[in-house]
């Protein structure tokens, strides 16, 4: 946890500095005796920097072999694939539409969560998105993006 805290503190200090820089560029006040739009962001900048420095000091002062550092690293492959697939899904969704993208995404997620029966994957990944589209369209009146299937789905 020691290293993590130091890295987090440094990232947050950089964030605070960047935020402070942007705050300095905000418009100044236009009404007398009224705090600027930058008033609250300045307080946030100060708090962020102060707390980040405390975290940095705590990190540097902590013993090198913290109990948190000894925890085994979690398996990373599946979560990384999940997040990349999620981002790709969201990126393609506006163009290809909900149905066309959700079916393969659902199937991939089922496989990532350990489902190995391909029949179950096929059935579920077809059924769930179709049901969602129908429920949202007809029950909740929220049309989900149709994408390239707009002509077919109407």
């Amino acid at each position: 946890m020691r290293t993590k805290n130091i890295v987090a503190a440094l990232v947050l200090i950089a964030l605070g500095a960047g935020y402070g820089y942007l705050t300095a560029g905000l418009p100044t006040r236009s009404l007398p005796n009224t705090p600027d739009p930058s008033f609250f962001p300045w307080i946030i900048t100060a708090c962020l920097l102060l707390l980040s420095v405390i975290l940095l000091v705590q990190g540097l002062a902590a013993p090198r072999k913290g109990s948190g550092d000894s925890v085994g690293a979690p398996p990373l492959r599946a979560p990384v694939v999940f997040l990349v697939a999620f981002a790709a899904y969201v990126a393609v969704l506006p163009y290809a539409g909900f149905l066309l993208t959700s079916v393969p995404f659902f199937a991939l997620l089922m496989a990532l969560y350990g489902e190995r029966r391909w029949g179950v994957i096929a059935a579920a990944s077809l059924t769930v998105p179709v049901v969602l589209v129908l429920v949202f369209r007809h029950v909740f009146q929220v049309p989900l993006p149709k994408g390239v299937l707009a002509g077919i789905l109407g």
Partner: peptide
């Protein structure tokens, strides 16, 4: 295996 993908889609 079914529950989690459904939640992911519902988040979107």
């Amino acid at each position: 295996t079914l529950l989690m993908p459904a939640i992911a889609i519902l988040c979107v």
